[in-house]
């Protein structure tokens, strides 16, 4: 059974000029330990999707299930990271990473919590920055710290809403590799919202293409790769084919090409 099961989800926002449908009969299934990337034209409701999975919102119709149980509200088994690292500036990096443990029940002692935070920080390459303030770190480093905070309470599901979107290309590729390292050491089931097709096939094992608003599941790509891969993976013939397919699907979603056109 899939860990995350999104079935026939339809959702509309209430606006002054009537309901604005954003999701229409959306179906996504993510197996336990899987990593699914969601791509689609901007404004197609990708962020709405993350809020539904996190239990911050309820769909109008359809169900979002975790372990076969419908999601009714926020749960402590979710970790989130956004494009904006939203670190608390009055806290040190270590205190920022520890924040979720102040909310979530934990069996760890204070010392064990700190050890775990330090371990995560070293995993993403932030050893020695534990006592720095967020304002003393670069954008990439802040995003790494934000990732540690999302993982500190060992969530089952990690929701990443364009976490690398605001970084420069080199930093981004660096973080992609960090992600693989983290997933190997700290297993989670991931949902990644992104605009970057290369990122989607480099990190995920399944890529879901959403259509334009209201978004529905337009295409699902099996990346046919699991676990860590290096950057060369992006330059194989298979990856080139997959990228061409995804690009075509995005063009269809944007209404620039029709389904029948050659990719």
């Amino acid at each position: 059974m899939a860990l995350i099961e999104i079935k026939g989800v339809t959702h509309a926002y209430k606006t002054a000029s009537g309901p604005l449908p954003v999701l229409n009969d959306l179906n996504i299934s993510v197996p336990e330990g899987g990593f699914t990337a969601v791509v689609g034209p901007s404004g197609c409701g990708k962020s709405t999707l993350t809020r539904l999975i996190a239990g911050l919102m309820k769909p109008d119709t359809g169900t979002v299930m975790l372990h076969g149980k419908p999601v009714t509200g926020p749960r402590a088994t979710v970790g989130m990271a956004f494009q904006n690292p939203v670190l608390l500036e009055w806290r040190t990096i270590l205190q920022n990473v520890l924040l979720p443990l102040e909310i979530v029940q934990t069996k760890l002692t204070r010392a064990e919590q700190q050890d775990r935070a330090r371990h995560l920080l070293s995993l993403v390459g932030l050893s020695g920055f534990e006592d720095k303030r967020p304002s003393e770190l670069s954008g990439g480093m802040r995003q790494r710290a934000s990732l540690c905070r999302a993982l500190i309470h060992q969530p089952e599901v990690l929701i990443l809403d364009e976490p690398f979107g605001a970084l420069d290309a080199f930093t981004r590729e660096d973080l992609w590799q960090t992600m693989h390292k983290v997933k190997e050491k700290e297993p989670f089931t991931g949902v990644l919202i992104t605009h970057d097709l290369r990122e989607s096939i480099f990190l995920a094992d399944q890529v879901v293409v959403l259509s334009g608003r209201p978004a529905t599941t337009q295409y699902v790509l099996d990346v046919q790769a699991e676990g860590p891969r290096d950057l060369d993976h992006l330059y194989t013939a298979k990856s080139a084919d997959q990228l061409a397919t995804l690009r075509h699907q995005i063009a269809v979603a944007q209404g620039r090409a029709s389904e029948g056109d050659a990719a």
Partner: peptide, 9 residues
């Protein structure tokens, strides 16, 4: 900012 804590309940 609200979501990171709200998502945890």
């Amino acid at each position: 900012y609200r979501d990171i804590l709200r998502a945890l309940g």
